[in-house]
C-alpha cells in the first residue's frame, strides 16, 4: 500500500532545503542559495511556504549593515521529513 507523499515536501527545491537543514543546526539564506543553486526569488518563496507550514523557523537579523535571514528546522519539520521518508520507502520497496 502506497502512503501519500506530503505535497509540500515533494517538490525538488523545498525537499533540498529541508534535506540541508535536517543535517544542520541552522543555515543562512546565502548558504542555502549556494548549495541548492536556486534563484533568490524562488528560494525566498519556497522558504516562506515551509515557514507557513511551521516546518522551518526563519529569523531575520543584520550582519553589520547587511540583512541576514537564518533558517532552522522545527520539530514539526523533522517529523514531517521523517514521515515523508517513510512514505517514500513504501514506493521503493520491492513488491
Amino acid at each position: 500500500m502506497f502512503k501519500p507523499l506530503d505535497p509540500l515536501l515533494h517538490s525538488e527545491l523545498r525537499l533540498a532545503i529541508m534535506s540541508l537543514l535536517i543535517g544542520l543546526q541552522e543555515a543562512d539564506f546565502g548558504y542555502l542559495k549556494d548549495k541548492t543553486k536556486a534563484t533568490s526569488g524562488n528560494l525566498s518563496v519556497q522558504i516562506d511556504k515551509l515557514r507557513e507550514a511551521s516546518y522551518i523557523e526563519v529569523n531575520k537579523s543584520f550582519k553589520g549593515k547587511m540583512p541576514c535571514t537564518t533558517c532552522k528546522i522545527t520539530p514539526q519539520g523533522i517529523a514531517a521529513f521523517q514521515t515523508y521518508i517513510d512514505a517514500l520507502q513504501s514506493y521503493l520497496e520491492p513488491k
Partner: peptide, 16 residues
C-alpha cells in the same frame, strides 16, 4: 533548482 514535482527516485537523490 526547480520547484516542479519529480519522481521518488529523484527525490531520494536530492535528499542524498
Amino acid at each position: 533548482m526547480e520547484t516542479n514535482k519529480f519522481s521518488e527516485q529523484e527525490s531520494l537523490e536530492v535528499i542524498r
